[in-house]
């Protein structure tokens, strides 16, 4: 989709024009004030990797990276993205080269149904950047904003523990 193709709200006087960097690409969008980042991604930009598990900040499935920090896309308004840098699960891999956390999640079978997985991975990228979690217990506490109903928590911890050094080392995205 080109940067200007999404202008659904243009005819609506309530729409606001915003500029952002989405998964490394500059984008200009017209958005309505009451559209959340999560609905913008899933329903308008066809980026369905960010999941809606609760829509109330109670599950973490919608976790994305806003200016490098992990946030819940369901409780962020799209109109507030103006001037900011947003990375979703679709923006983590480098072409066919999976992000170290994505690789580790596959290797450690750190999911079953996969619905919480994009949020878990984005959250783990944010965790790595924060640099606060050293021990397994600390990772566990700081990953507790991401529910996994399949109960793959042990494998999630294994994957993050393994990929944390490589993830901390990386630069952008």
């Amino acid at each position: 989709m080109s940067a200007t193709s999404l202008r659904e709200g243009r005819s609506d006087p309530a729409a606001h024009s915003i500029s952002l960097v989405l998964n490394g690409q500059p984008r200009q969008l017209d958005v309505l004030p009451w559209t959340t980042v999560l609905d913008l991604l899933r329903e308008q930009l066809d980026l369905t990797g960010s999941k809606k598990g609760c829509d109330h900040g109670q599950c973490g499935a919608c976790t994305v990276l806003l200016d490098g920090k992990r946030v819940n896309a369901c409780l962020t308004l799209a109109v507030m993205l103006d001037g900011r840098d947003l990375t979703t699960i679709e923006g983590l891999a480098n072409g066919d080269q999976l992000h170290p956390l994505q690789e580790a999640f596959v290797r450690h079978d750190a999911f079953q149904c996969g619905y919480c997985t994009p949020g878990q991975i984005c959250s783990a990228v944010g965790l790595a950047r924060e640099g606060r979690a050293q021990s397994r217990d600390e990772i566990s506490e700081l990953m507790s904003g991401n529910l996994c109903r399949c109960g793959a928590y042990n494998n999630i911890l294994d994957a993050i523990e393994e990929a944390l050094p490589a993830t901390r080392g990386e630069g952008g995205a």
């Binding site: 900040g57 920090k69 992990r70 946030v71 409780l75 959250s123 944010g126 904003g145």
Partner: peptide
């Protein structure tokens, strides 16, 4: 309180 994501916001 809350979660790391919510505390960031």
């Amino acid at each position: 309180g809350a979660s790391p994501q919510l505390r960031n916001m």
